[in-house]
């Protein structure tokens, strides 16, 4: 199979050709897109479907801590929780990954061991991305060397908004190369757009194609440090992009909304959008993730409500 860079070599040959391509994508009508997302948000997911959705959502969580105050202790606790989200219920699945800063990767990795829970690291001068490229690449290599399974990079929004698409493209390609592991494998690359700064859905669609063409394995809405973070319509537009990209190339790319998804109800809305816009193929942790921290306990509480038939309270779930 040819690499993607080859498939789109005509497009990415020059700033002009890349610009033509991105601006030639169909526009997104804001009102129509938001209405569609809102309609999907009215889906009523009950009983068996709800139980299925809650477990799936738990399995899709990238349990995240990205604080200046993070410590090894905090990360160890988070990693424990990731493996056993509900210590009282062994049927509760584990989450997809823990997401930390690069200097915490080793600690997370050590705690998680062979659990199958991945370690994701935010790199490339997260969250602003305002650093020289070699600094960003060094940041990435650090995290990969420390054992990160996944790298969450940020795009240079300044370059994107000023129309320097090729620069953004080349940076993603470079970071993806920096994801290479000594064993010949590669950390999975998630490309964060910070959609709250891109402002328009047209930009989100263009950024999506840019990142997919550059070889990103996932496209991700937000750092969680800028408002608005993930929204249902933004995620829908990104899901449309990965769906169309697969139609065009045969390659699947994952989607990760991050930040602002706090309730089970919200999470289920996202799953509905995944189901009805991209399709069931994306309804696996391999292709869809939630970047979240408090969401997990909400999912657990709802899960307990379904199994016990009564509402639970926060004291019955661990705070880590």
């Amino acid at each position: 199979m040819p690499t993607l860079a080859t498939d789109f070599s005509d497009v990415t040959r020059s700033e002009a050709s890349l610009r033509r391509f991105l601006h030639g994508l169909p526009g997104v009508d804001q009102v129509g897109a938001e209405a569609r997302a809102a309609m999907l948000g009215t889906r009523s997911i009950k009983t068996t479907a709800k139980a299925q959705a809650l477990d799936l959502a738990i399995r899709m969580v990238d349990l995240t801590t990205l604080e200046g105050a993070d410590t090894h202790g905090k990360v160890r606790a988070l990693a424990s929780k990731a493996q056993r989200p509900d210590p009282a219920d062994p049927t509760c699945p584990q989450v997809a990954a823990v997401c930390v800063y690069p200097d915490m990767v080793a600690t997370a990795k050590e705690t998680l061991g062979a659990s199958g829970v991945h370690v994701a690291a935010v790199a490339t001068a997260f969250p602003s991305g305002r650093a020289a490229l070699d600094v960003k690449l060094a940041d990435t290599r650090d995290a990969v060397e420390a054992g990160a399974d996944e790298i969450d990079m940020v795009i240079d929004r300044g370059a994107f908004l000023s129309g320097r698409y090729l620069q953004v493209f080349e940076e993603i390609v470079a970071v993806r190369e920096a994801c290479a592991k000594p064993d010949g494998g590669s950390a999975h690359l998630k490309v964060i757009f910070e959609t709250g700064e891109l402002q328009t859905y047209d930009n989100v669609r263009r950024a999506s194609w840019l990142a997919m063409m550059a070889g990103g394995h996932f496209i991700k809405t937000s750092t969680g440090k800028v408002q608005p973070a993930a929204t249902l319509p933004v995620t829908m537009v990104m899901l449309e992009a990965v769906r169309d990209f697969r139609e065009a190339t045969g390659h699947m790319v994952g989607v990760k909304p991050a930040g602002g998804i706090r309730t089970s109800k919200d999470a289920i809305k996202y799953l509905v959008v995944v189901n009805e816009v991209a399709g069931a193929d994306w309804l696996v942790p391999e292709w869809f993730r939630f970047g979240a921290s408090t969401l997990l306990n909400e999912l657990l509480m709802q899960r307990t409500k379904l199994t016990t038939g009564r509402y639970s309270g926060p004291d019955y779930f661990t705070l880590d």
Partner: peptide
């Protein structure tokens, strides 16, 4: 993952 079948929500 089985297909995400929405249960009846009458």
């Amino acid at each position: 993952m089985s297909v995400f079948e929405y249960a009846p929500a009458p």
